[in-house]
Amino acid sequence: MHPQSNQTDTLNKLRPLTELKGMERATIHDLCGGVGFRSRLAALGFTPGVQITMLQNLGHGPIIVTLRDTRIALGRGEAYKILVAPEKREQ
């Protein structure tokens, strides 16, 4: 079930948004969940290929991200359904 079990290189790097640390950047790969939920997120700009930055993630509770010049708070459950490919760390 977890994306890490996949073989290919890109898929290997995929993880849920909840695993990004503060100020880490990533690219959205896919959304999981029901049509209503995905369409709400997509309308807010959570579409595959877009860059997203984690602003606050304490390892529990809701998180704050920024994408398309907008700050958005997400519940942890919601954030877990967003698959991202993290960017390489800038030294």
Binding site: F37, R40, L44, R71, I72, A73, L74, G75, G77
Partner: peptide, 11 residues
Amino acid sequence: EHMAFIMELPL
């Protein structure tokens, strides 16, 4: 029904 928490934090 689960109420999804998705909220914009305006400037």
